[in-house]
Design a protein around this nucleic acid. Structure first.
Lengths: 386, 386
DNA sequence: ACACAATTGTTCCGTCGTGAAAGTAACCCG
DNA sequence: CGGGTTACTTTCACGACGGAACAATTGTGT
C-alpha cells in the first residue's frame, strides 16, 4: 500500500466517480458508468484490496430500496492519504493539508520576504514540514502561481514574482522528496471546483474570480479548456463600457477597472480623497453614501454584463463567482441579476449563478486538488488538438 | 449494399475519419486513431467489402515516403449515395442534392405560397422528386428550419412559419418514403462547417451567422453544444453599445440592431429617407457616402466587439463568419479586425477569423450534412448531462 | 544486377475487458 | 419458514485489441 497500483482506465473512472460523487453502491456505479454489475465486481475488487476503497459501515441510507438485499456503499478512504497545497502571492505564501476528498485538515501562512526562487522553494519546504509534523508523509504537493506555467513544473513567466522559466517543481521536489505539481492558480481553482465544488458533475461550467485581478476558467465536457491568456491576468481588455472608469490597472471601462478590489478602492479614493478599505466601501454603498454607491453600482452593472456575456457565448450550465471580491454580490446582487436579465433573451433559461467568497487558503486547496488528480489518478493535462 | 452495415464504434470512427479528412492510408489512419496497423486491416476490410470505402487509384501523392512500399490511400465512394437538404425560409424553400462528401450536385428553389404544414411537406416531396429525377434514390433527407426543433423530427416552435409542434419529419417521410432528419438551421450549418468546412478537425470552433437575423453555434470537443435560445433567434439582447441604434428588431444597441441586414437597411432608410439595398449601402460606405459609412462603420465596430467577446469567453481555435450579411467584412474588415484587437489582450493569440458568404443553398447543404451524420453513421445528438 | 533497407499492409495468436446469464447472499414480509 | 425482491458474485464466451512475425513493394548502394 505504499504506492498505489497503476490503475486501468476503467478502474480510474470508478475511483474518480466514488471520489467525486461520494459513497456509491456497486449497482449505482454500474448505472452511472454504464457498465454491467459483473464488471463492477471485477473493477472494485483490486481497488478495495489496495485500500483505496472501503465498504462503508452503514448500508445505504435514505432513498434506498424498500425491500431486497440492502446495497453496500463503497467509499474512498479519504484519510488514507494527505496532500499539500500552496498558493504563492506577492508577499505571502498560504498552505493547506487536505484529505483525498479535499477536506482541509490544516492551514498555515507565512510572509514572503524575498522572491528569490531558492528562498521561496525553501520556505515551501519548511512549511511542508510544519504542516505535516506528527502526521504521515503526504502523497504529493500542488502549487498554484499566478502566471504562465508549463508542463506542470516550470513557471514560464510570472509578472508579480519577476520570474521567468523557474523550475519550481524541481526545486521543491529536491527539498522535500515529494512529487510536485505546479499550475496556474486560476486553473487549479477551476479544477478544484469542478471536482469538489460548484461544478461537480457538470459538463459545462465557468468560473470567474474577482480579487486583486480577474480570473476566468471554462470547463467543457468535464475538462478545463486550456487557455493562452493566463500569463498576465484576464480582463484588462474586456471593455464593458467604453465610457467607464479609467484606473491604473486596465483599459478604460475594462472589467478590471470596474471590478477588481484595487480598482474600486482607487475610484473611491480618487473621488473622495480618502483611502477606504473594500469592505468599508461596500458598507458605505449599502448605507447610501453617494460616491461609494455610485462606484459599487457601476461595478455591479459591469459584473452583470460580464456574466451575461459568459452565459451567452460559452453557454455553461453554471457560473461560479469566486475570490475575495465577490462581497459585491451581497450588497448589489439584485443589480447584478437585473443586469444579467437585461442582457439575455427573455425566454432563455436564467443563469445558474453561485457565489463563493474565497480566501487565499481556498486557492491553496485548489492547488492540492491538482496534486490529487495528477498523482493519485494519473491524470494528465488535456492536450489541445489542432 | 442496399442498406449499410450497422457499424461498430471503431468502424464508425474510421469511416468518419476518411469522410472528413480525405483519402488516408491505413497507416495514416492508425496514427490518427491511435490504433495498431493490424486493427486497421481488420476494420477497413468490411468497409471496403460493403462498398463504403475503396482503395484510391494512385498511390500516395506528395509528402509521402521516400522509400519503402508506397501507401495505399483509402477513400470514401462519395458518389455511392446522395442526400437531399432543404432550407425553409418565410417565403421560399431551397433544396440541394449532395454526395457523401457534401459536394452539391444539384440545386433548386421554389416559392412558398402558404405555410400550411401539409402544403409545405407536399412541396418538399415534390422538390425531392424533381431533384432526384433520373438519378438513384437518395439515402435520406435533411431539413433546416429556423426555430426550435425537438428529437430531430418535430418543429416545436417556429415564429416565422407560425408553427407549433408540427411533425414535419413524419409528414415528409410519409410522402417520400425516405428517412428524414429535421434540425434547427443554424445547428445544421454549424455541423456542416465542423465536418466539411472551416471547422474541420478542430476541437473548439465557433460560428456566427449574419443575415436577416443572427445565429451562433459553438463546437467543443468536436461536438456542437446544444443551446436553448435558438427558438427566437440570437442576439436581440446582446447589448453591444447601450447608446447604439434602435431598430424594430432588437433592443437598443443590440447585435441584431447593429448587424442584421434589415436593421442596417432600416437605419439608412431612417436617416436618408431612401430605401437602399444592402449591397448598395456597402458600396456607398466604401465610396464615402456619409450616412452609409456611419452605419456600416458602427456595424463593423459592433461586429469586432462581438467577435472579441466570443474569442475571450468561449476561446475557440477559430471563428467563422457566415451568412448573407458578411459582405461587411469586404468593406470594413480592417475596422472589424482593429476593434477585435482593441478588445483582446495584446499578448493573446490573434483570432483566427474566416469569412464565408453563404446563400440559402448553403444552408440547405448544411441540412444535408445532418442527414449524412444521422443516417449513414448512426450518430445521435449529444445528450446534455447534468 | 543484386542484396539490403525501409515502409506498408496482412496474418496469427494471446490477452484483456466486457456483458449475459446463472447462481448466491441478504433483507422484508406474511 | 418460505416467497418476493434486490444486491452482488461467479462463470463463460465473445470480441476488440496489440504485438510479432511475415509478405509485399519500392528505393538505395555497391
Amino acid at each position: 500500500m505504499t504506492s498505489w497500483l497503476p490503475l486501468s482506465p476503467a478502474e480510474r473512472s470508478v475511483a474518480i466517480e466514488v471520489l467525486v460523487h461520494g459513497p456509491l453502491s456497486r449497482t449505482g456505479l454500474a448505472r452511472r458508468l454504464r457498465l454491467s454489475q459483473g464488471s463492477l465486481t471485477r473493477l472494485t475488487k483490486p481497488l478495495i484490496e489496495s485500500g483505496l476503497l472501503v465498504e462503508a459501515a452503514g448500508p445505504g441510507g435514505t432513498g434506498g430500496n424498500r425491500q431486497g438485499r440492502p446495497s453496500q456503499p463503497l467509499d474512498i478512504v479519504a484519510g488514507s492519504r494527505s496532500f499539500l497545497g500552496f498558493k504563492i502571492t506577492a508577499d505571502r505564501v498560504y498552505g493547506v493539508v487536505t484529505t483525498l476528498r479535499s477536506e482541509v485538515t490544516g492551514r498555515l501562512d507565512r510572509p514572503l520576504s524575498t522572491r528569490e526562487p531558492d528562498v521561496v522553494a525553501g520556505l515551501l519546504a519548511e512549511m511542508a514540514g510544519a504542516l505535516t509534523a506528527g502526521r504521515p508523509a503526504p502523497a504529493g504537493i500542488g502549487i498554484g502561481v499566478g502566471g504562465r506555467v508549463r508542463e506542470r513544473a516550470l513557471v514560464g513567466e510570472s509578472a508579480f514574482l519577476g520570474w521567468r522559466d523557474v523550475p519550481l517543481g524541481a526545486l521543491v521536489r529536491e527539498r522535500t522528496g515529494l512529487p510536485v505539481v505546479v499550475e496556474n492558480d486560476v486553473a487549479a481553482l477551476v479544477e478544484a471546483e469542478t471536482w469538489f465544488g460548484a461544478g461537480r458533475g457538470l459538463d459545462r461550467f465557468a468560473v470567474l474570480t474577482i480579487g486583486a485581478g480577474l480570473g476566468y476558467g471554462l470547463v467543457l465536457g468535464g475538462r478545463r479548456v486550456p487557455y493562452a491568456e493566463e500569463d498576465r491576468g484576464f480582463g484588462r481588455h474586456w471593455i464593458i463600457d467604453p465610457h467607464g472608469p479609467l484606473t491604473p490597472e486596465g483599459a478604460r471601462g475594462s472589467a478590471v477597472s470596474l471590478l477588481t478590489i484595487p480598482s474600486i478602492r482607487y475610484q473611491v479614493r480618487a473621488a473622495t480623497g480618502r483611502d477606504a478599505g473594500y469592505e468599508e466601501i461596500l458598507a458605505g454603498a449599502a448605507a447610501g453614501e453617494p460616491m461609494a454607491f455610485r462606484v459599487v453600482d457601476e461595478a455591479a452593472r459591469g459584473l452583470g454584463v460580464l456574466v451575461a456575456q459568459i452565459a451567452n457565448f460559452a453557454m455553461p450550465q453554471k457560473i461560479l463567482l469566486a475570490g475575495e471580491g465577490v462581497g459585491l454580490m451581497d450588497v448589489a446582487g439584485n443589480t447584478v441579476r437585473e443586469t444579467i436579465r437585461a442582457h439575455r433573451h427573455p425566454l432563455a433559461a436564467p443563469v445558474d449563478l453561485e457565489t463563493k467568497v474565497s480566501d487565499f487558503h481556498d486557492w491553496a486547496r485548489g492547488a492540492a486538488v491538482l496534486a490529487i488528480q495528477v498523482l493519485v489518478l494519473g491524470l494528465t493535462e488535456a492536450r489541445d488538438p489542432g
